[in-house]
Design a protein around this nucleic acid. Structure first.
Length: 594
DNA sequence: GGCTAGTGCCAC
DNA sequence: AAACGTGGCACTAGCC
């Protein structure tokens, strides 16, 4: 059963009160959807709790349809209301709108078996949870200002949302692969629930551990506006060593000039280039390393200070000792999640020790191994690569196969570089040189990547396994690749085609891996709920999850997470031709992972 | 004061 | 501009 929740529509010519919502039950068969219940928006959790029984339905059978789960769900969680299933109209609209621009999707106006093509009934912006529009402030003066006739203060009403739902369902059913797109819709929507729940739970973060770590590396917390003592001392040493006393190492132009004046022949101040200069020193390597040691140390510590220092702690770790990461489901063009605020997707390994389980609880960290090449093997139905994908260490097995075939892909490191390079579109170096060997060993897999690249170079769109499409190139791109008026224009056109090809090449793999991860988390969530466990998902980074729960649940949780990974593979690929093994362990500190 | 571009580093 | 994909974010410099 589908129940749409949204702002009440006008009735009898009278506008509904601004904070009134309606529940619209969408019948399975014929019949128009009708508002079944009207309620104040703040009462939504009670409605969600009570309405299914009043309609004679099991709560677990209801799919709640919302314009934006990110916007609506947080107060429900706060009220202790969790739902099993939902349909996020905004997230699905984004997927369908993009698909509609791709001729092969079956979603657009030209394709489809009987569908007229997907056109949104109403625009549903994908709001960030921080977006002021997601949390309208109740300032009466503002209300008066926005209460103009026709002002879309509350967005589409529940009946419009029901109509949009209808359009979305039709588009899915008429698409090229309805069962896959259905899964994507369910997984993306479930992802929105997971993201909101992770944010609400938060990653347990020990302020004392973090502060001790900062004190150890940077010295005591400095007064506002001053550098920490260790950094200040290093800045002075750098100035002295480079013959530029008083210089500010935070100023890249200043530092670069000082380095060059001191005979350090680099063109940037990047760490890798400084390291390369040291390596090239021959007999003078020691001297060079000693000269640049304070610079390197300054860079590392300055990064810690600015990215994850005391300010970060104050801003992102509240009194509850949790880091509440805000995830943007499908926020990356490939479908990966993005994060907003606090750098949640880039918590450096150096500060992960501050992530500590509560007393009596434990962190379970699960990291999926080599997801992308496994995904590639499964998508391409590449038998040989899939064989490697049934082993725990895919790269090692690829090296075995490479050695047996007498190719240069004879050790694990080369196998890894070659495969990653193939998925990223490497054109130089070791990985490009190994491509012919890879192509011979895995013609189906490499063929899939090269076809995806060719589509991108030609300005076309590609799709993930479940049906998330890459964007169509914009006018500017089309014009630039058509411009062959000069040699410079022609080479620029070629460069941009290649770049688009690398993007689509990577898109199919990265995007499908993101779909696997989405299903993985959905399965974890479903199983945790079914088992009635207290353990919660508290963190996610592309192919890694962190759960936090009572120590006595840990053993079951490890098994549950691994089972969920297998189930996700089955959901995508049926009897999955590859395995999705995990490195999974329970621990007190996140730093113990890997 | 705000804004953008450039730079550099973190994660996968 | 580091070869080779996706991002976020902090800082400086230089503009209005």
């Amino acid at each position: 059963m589908l129940i749409v929740l949204g702002p009440s529509p006008a009735s009898g010519g009278a506008a509904a009160p601004p904070d009134e919502w309606s529940a619209v039950v969408v019948p399975d068969g014929e019949g128009a959807p009708e508002p079944a219940v009207r309620f104040r928006r703040a009462q939504a959790p009670d409605v969600v709790r009570g309405l299914p029984a009043r309609l004679g339905a099991e709560a677990a059978q209801v799919r709640w349809v919302l314009a934006s789960v990110a916007e609506a769900y947080a107060p429900w969680i706060a009220a202790g209301v969790h739902v099993d299933r939902c349909w996020d109209l905004g997230l699905v609209q984004r997927i369908l709108t993009r698909a509609a621009s791709a001729p092969g999707s079956g979603v657009g106006p030209t394709g489809g078996s009987g569908g007229a093509g997907y056109r949104p009934v109403c625009e549903i912006p994908v709001l960030e949870p921080e977006d002021p529009a997601a949390h309208p402030r109740h300032d009466p003066a503002q209300d008066a200002f926005f209460d103009l006739p026709g002002a879309a203060q509350t967005g589409p009403d529940a009946l419009m949302l029901a109509a949009e739902l209808r359009a979305q369902r039709a588009a899915v059913e008429h698409s090229a692969h309805p069962h896959r797109l259905r899964l994507l819709v369910a997984a993306e929507s479930q992802g929105a629930l997971v993201a909101a729940e992770i944010r609400a739970a938060g990653l347990p973060w020990s302020r004392p551990v973090h502060e001790a770590l900062l004190a150890e590396q940077l010295g005591p917390r400095p007064p506002e506006g001053e550098r920490p003592a260790r950094l200040q001392a290093l800045a002075e040493r750098i100035g002295a060593a480079l013959g530029a006393p008083g210089m500010n190492p935070d100023s890249q132009p200043t530092l670069l000039r000082a380095l060059q004046t001191a005979g350090v022949t680099v063109e940037s101040t990047r760490q890798w280039e400084l390291n390369r200069w040291i390596e090239q020193g021959g007999a003078a390597r020691q001297e060079r390393a000693a000269l640049l040691a304070p610079v390197m140390e300054y860079k590392a510590l300055a990064r810690l200070w600015t990215a994850n220092g005391w300010h970060w702690l104050d801003q992102w770790v509240g009194q509850d000792g949790r880091f509440h990461a805000t995830y943007l489901v499908g926020g990356v063009v490939t479908g990966r999640w993005a994060a907003h605020g606090g750098g949640a997707m880039q918590v450096p390994s150096g500060v992960r020790d501050a992530v500590r389980a509560d007393p009596g609880w434990t962190l379970t960290v699960a990291d999926a191994s080599q997801v992308e090449p496994r995904i590639l093997a499964a998508m391409a139905r590449d038998e040989a690569l899939a064989r490697a994908g049934t082993t725990p260490d895919l790269y090692r097995e690829v090296a075995e196969q490479g050695r047996a075939a007498g190719t240069a892909l004879a050790d694990r490191a080369r196998a890894k570089v070659a495969l990653l390079g193939a998925m990223y579109g490497a054109t130089t170096g070791d990985s490009a040189a190994l491509m012919p060997h890879l192509r011979r060993l895995y013609p189906a897999a490499i063929g899939l990547l090269e076809r995806a690249a060719a589509v991108g170079e030609a300005g076309g769109q590609v799709s993930t396994w479940l049906g998330r499409w890459s964007p169509a190139p914009d006018e500017e791109w089309l014009a630039s690749v058509a411009d062959v008026s000069t040699q410079a224009a022609e080479s620029s056109a070629r460069r941009r085609r290649r770049s688009a090809g690398r993007f689509t090449r990577n898109f199919v793999v990265q995007g499908t891996a993101a779909e696997w991860a989405l299903c993985w988390m959905g399965e974890i969530r479903r199983r945790l709920r079914a088992a009635g466990m207290a353990t919660q998902l508290v963190f996610f980074v592309h192919d890694e999850v962190v759960l936090h729960g009572p120590a006595e649940e840990a053993e079951a949780v490890r098994a549950l997470v691994a089972d969920a990974a297998t189930a996700a593979g089955r959901l995508l690929f049926g009897q999955a031709p590859v395995d999705f093994p995990l490195t999974v362990a329970s621990m007190g500190s996140y730093a113990e992972a890997k």
